Computed example of a mutant assay.
Amino acid sequence: MTSDDFARPGRSRSLQTYAALGPEQTEAVLALLAEAAKTDGQQAVSEQGRLQLRGGERDGVSHLLLSVDGELVGYAQLEDTDPVEPPAAELVVHPSHRGNGHGRALGSALLAASGKRLRVWAHGGHSAARHLAQVLGLTLFRELRQMRRPLADLDLPDPVLPDGVTVRTFVPGRDDAAWLAVNAAA
């Protein structure tokens, strides 16, 4: 565990790094993630990252907890398990504590811990995340987009398929390899 204190008038900000979180810490982080998701409309940490919160100690995974006056206001996870790619990170600041430099403190700590080789996943493309990336000297490398359409109440014509083309539902056990090949090619 490491600890850094940041001097702020009248407030005490601390940043601690753990190899694994205890049950109370885990619940506090999950509550922070839930509050952020309510505000942001999506999770700030991936499903894998949330599972790693409860998974105990795992080689190459670190948890950074940022507190102000003993209250958890920020969380980051650093995963350095890929032998080729730089370490990956995700971070979140409680919505009521944003705009106070906490994201910058977490980001700077992640950069220092990773030797300034870092991939940060920012879920949702929020302007604050883009600003933080710019402040930290990070650049957009890859952007994933989700396209959605409601499937109820559609008034679509029957499809017209070319000769020799048929459409059927996926058959588990039969179509797995072909689906994986198409997904890998995409």
Rank of each mutant, 00 (worst) to 15 (best):
Ser3Tyr: 04
Ser3Ala: 10
Asp5Ser: 01
Phe6His: 06
Ala7Gln: 14
Arg8Lys: 08
Pro9Arg: 10
Gly10Glu: 09
Ser14Lys: 05
Leu15Asn: 10
Gly22His: 10
Pro23Gln: 15
Glu24Cys: 10
Gln25Gly: 05
Thr26Met: 07
Thr26Ser: 08
Thr26Ile: 08
Ala28Arg: 11
Leu30Ser: 15
Ala31Ile: 11
Ala31Lys: 05
Ala31Arg: 07
Leu33Lys: 06
Ala34Tyr: 00
Ala36Ile: 09
Ala37Pro: 03
Ala37Trp: 00
Gln43Met: 08
Ala44Pro: 06
Ala44Asn: 08
Ala44Ile: 05
Val45Ser: 02
Val45Glu: 01
Glu47Cys: 15
Gln48Glu: 07
Gln48Gly: 08
Gly49Gln: 05
Leu51Lys: 04
Gln52Leu: 12
Leu53Ile: 05
Arg54Thr: 01
Gly55Ala: 02
Gly56Gln: 07
Glu57Arg: 11
Glu57Thr: 08
Arg58Lys: 09
Arg58Tyr: 01
Asp59Leu: 10
Gly60Arg: 08
His63Gly: 12
Leu66Gly: 09
Ser67Tyr: 12
Ser67Thr: 06
Val68Thr: 13
Val68Glu: 12
Val68Ala: 05
Asp69Cys: 09
Gly70Lys: 03
Leu72Gly: 13
Tyr75Gln: 14
Tyr75Ile: 14
Tyr75Val: 12
Glu79Val: 13
Thr81Trp: 04
Thr81Cys: 15
Asp82Arg: 00
Ala88Gly: 08
Glu90Tyr: 00
Val92Leu: 04
Val93Ser: 14
His94Asn: 14
Pro95Ile: 02
Pro95Glu: 07
His97Leu: 09
Gly99Thr: 08
Gly101Ser: 03
His102Thr: 13
Gly103Ile: 06
Ala109Thr: 00
Ala109Tyr: 00
Leu111Ser: 03
Leu111Lys: 03
Ala112Pro: 07
Ser114Lys: 06
Ser114Asp: 07
Ser114Phe: 01
Lys116Gln: 11
Lys116Met: 13
Leu118Ile: 04
Arg119Met: 03
Val120Pro: 03
Val120Cys: 01
Trp121Cys: 11
Ala122Leu: 03
His123Cys: 07
Gly125Cys: 07
His126Thr: 15
Ser127His: 11
Ala128Leu: 14
Ala129Val: 12
His131Val: 14
Leu132Val: 06
Leu136Met: 15
Leu138Trp: 09
Leu140Asn: 06
Phe141Lys: 01
Leu144Asp: 08
Arg145Glu: 15
Met147Asp: 01
Arg148Phe: 07
Asp153Leu: 11
Leu154Thr: 13
Leu156Thr: 12
Pro159Lys: 01
Val160Met: 07
Leu161Val: 11
Leu161Tyr: 06
Pro162Met: 01
Pro162Ser: 00
Gly164Ala: 14
Gly164Glu: 09
Thr166Tyr: 14
Val167Asp: 14
Val167Tyr: 05
Arg168Leu: 10
Thr169Asn: 07
Thr169Ala: 09
Val171Lys: 11
Val171Ala: 10
Gly173Lys: 02
Gly173Ala: 02
Gly173Pro: 00
Arg174Ser: 15
Asp175Lys: 01
Asp175Tyr: 00
Asp175Ala: 02
Trp179Tyr: 04
Trp179Glu: 05
Ala181Thr: 00
Val182Pro: 04
Asn183Arg: 02
Ala185Thr: 00
Ala186Phe: 03
